[in-house]
Design a protein around this nucleic acid. Structure first.
Lengths: 219, 219
DNA sequence: CTATGATTAAAACGAACGTATGAATTATAC
DNA sequence: GTATAATTCATACGTTCGTTTTAATCATAG
């Protein structure tokens, strides 16, 4: 493994991450990717095998760290709680806060990866959904159990639904940072992007917790 | 205008709606669409001009009614209130409830269109975002103003953000009805789809209102 | 019935797609 | 320095894409 190889692989991953985010999987061509990465057209197939494998590697590079971190933080919370249930707000922050704080870390993909992730959760491509399902499964199961314990009086089905809703709100908050601005044509006051992120986290957390703890619907 | 023409146009729109929902805009080919609609390949270009125009017409066919209905319901609420601010819960139901109840109306696209809409709000394609922005603008402005009046003590920027979050939660609740099931691998109890929809509406409404009325974050 | 316009049909267009090939180049090991 | 393996490169392959063209078929009006 020489230096050039690493650079090439990394440049391809960076270009793929940005272009998949901006134009989607189907909307991004190998020639765009290799063009932006300034590498030969055949380099993607040489290093990753195929366009699909590249997409998976783009995700794996970031998700491995993210999900490990989520596990680590939840481990910590549970050991601090020493058998007592963990506060719902702490669980929500461990899952969504950890995600959002990635946006500020350019070494972990920053806002680009977060927007890619947000968009991909609604991506129709079969292989991507299957891949993400596999990547997420373990973490989801842990958090699901933690929330069940934290909210013993709430029916489990309700918690599962509300987790769905929270995922949706979060994905849009990120992916739609500019997409929804177009849809709504609302100008949110012009903060620079780090400011916006810093204020987004508490805003979203309030909303998520308000939704999670809302009174149960009566059927 | 003969009968055949209408049938052809309608069949193309139906096929396009379903396929764009299932595979996305870029992931759906003209040959798939015309194949499923059982019409000649050239029929799309003849009746709609291009693939882009077809996509726009797929949306216009449903959104025209939806947004008119949203306007009508809000008009009604405001005239009933006779100058007093309308209750936030009524506004939320007028906007999101009207949308969700479309899912039960097969003549208006039903679940298929709703899932298409949910997915498209994160779709990266430029022309689609621009088109949706234009279609939505008037309605959004009306609802924004109504919420400002209904929640005079909440900063406007906060309301705008929370509307974003509500849109995200709703889109995922619909678009992700099966997509997120894959991501999370959570089995939600097996209700038939009308049951699931009937229970989704109050569940989502509780969540949205809980989030909308959550305590403001302290910076 | 015939003329006219609207629609459908079959076929082909050039462009772009993801991938594969084999030679040229570069780095590593002895 | 030379052999060997890893990587880069230019190029081409076979498909599929959205669109266009030209002719055939249909419906309707006079």
């Amino acid at each position: 493994m020489e230096v050039r190889t690493v650079d090439t692989r990394e440049r391809i991953l960076d270009a793929g991450e940005r272009l998949f985010m901006a134009h989607g999987y189907e909307g991004t061509s190998m020639r765009q990717i290799t063009g932006e990465a300034a590498v030969n057209l055949a380099a993607v197939n040489y290093h990753f095998g195929s366009k699909e494998s590249l997409m998976q590697e783009v995700f794996r590079r970031r998700l491995d760290w993210l999900n490990d971190e989520r596990m680590r933080v939840l481990d910590e919370l549970e050991s601090e709680a020493a058998g007592q249930p963990v506060k719902p707000s702490a669980i929500v922050d461990a899952f969504f806060g950890t995600l959002l704080r990635m946006a500020g870390d350019e070494n972990r993909g920053g806002m680009t990866f977060l927007r890619l992730l947000g968009r991909t959760l609604t991506e129709p491509s079969e292989f991507i959904r299957a891949f993400l399902a596999h990547e997420y499964q373990t973490v989801m199961d842990r958090y699901k159990e933690a929330l069940f314990k934290a909210l013993p009086e709430v029916p489990k089905a309700e918690i599962v639904w509300r987790f769905h809703f929270m995922l949706g709100a979060t994905s849009y908050a990120i992916a739609g940072t500019d997409a929804l601005r177009l849809v709504t044509d609302w100008q949110i006051e012009d903060e620079d992007s780090t400011d916006r992120l810093d204020r987004l986290v508490p805003r979203l957390m309030s909303f998520l917790l308000g939704g999670l703890r809302a009174p149960l619907p009566q059927f």
